[in-house]
Amino acid sequence: MSTLEIKDLHVEVETEAGPKQILKGVDLVIASGEVHAIMGPNGSGKSTMAYSVAGHPKYTITQGSVKLDGVELTQLSVDQRAKAGLFLAMQYPIEVPGVSVANFLRTAKTALSGEAPKVRTWVKEVNEAMSRLGLDETFSSRSLNEGFSGGEKKRNEIVQLELLKPKFAILDETDSGLDIDALRIVSEGVNRYMAEGGHGTLLITHYTRILNYIKPDFVHVFVDGRIVTEGGPELAENLEVEGYDRFVKMAAAA
């Protein structure tokens, strides 16, 4: 049983006009076995939360804490956070020319587990994971994300999720830009990851569409750098009907 605990998180980003506060005190607790959906309008700070928790250098945490099983992540380097059990599936996965997917996966697995995976079983495992996500074997010899379509990049993120088996996964708009088939395939990957047990997922999305495939246990609505309301899956259904407007006005009035 693991816990990811975000407490009073305040985050700034450097802009030309000086530092700008994006997160204004976020509290969130995720236990393994749970899927939390974070929904909210553009610019509300959802991605900022994802990237600052993962340790992106662009964001400065000015207050608050993020603990994974009691370990303070904000004191750790990016790779140490991953080693502690955190995974971020990015909205725009980065291209790394000349580094093959196979080499990248092996290097990451080795770094995370502290020893090189056994060649024979590992190659099989990689090929199976890719095939489940609808990527053929040629992808493993291609440069990481280079020349991949948007959908292929997202599938590749979920291949990594399945192979690296983090304690907690933050999925930053993994559903954006996916067609219906890809959405289903990617969702099935996330569901397999959850079904293995001991894992928790924080699903960031604009749309309720992906929630038809990945059932959230909790839904949080994010507006202007804070969680303004939370509830069960029924909250997502309300949002589908009512939109974010009510919450945006509420936050503005507060």
């Binding site: 990016v78 790779d79 080693k83 980065i94 790394v96 770094a111």
Partner: peptide
């Protein structure tokens, strides 16, 4: 690129080397 590689657990020096 470094952030992406490191977010998968690859230590900084090794990430630089890969790049």
């Amino acid at each position: 690129q470094l952030f992406y590689l490191r977010s998968r657990g690859i230590p900084e020096a090794e990430a630089r080397r890969l790049v």
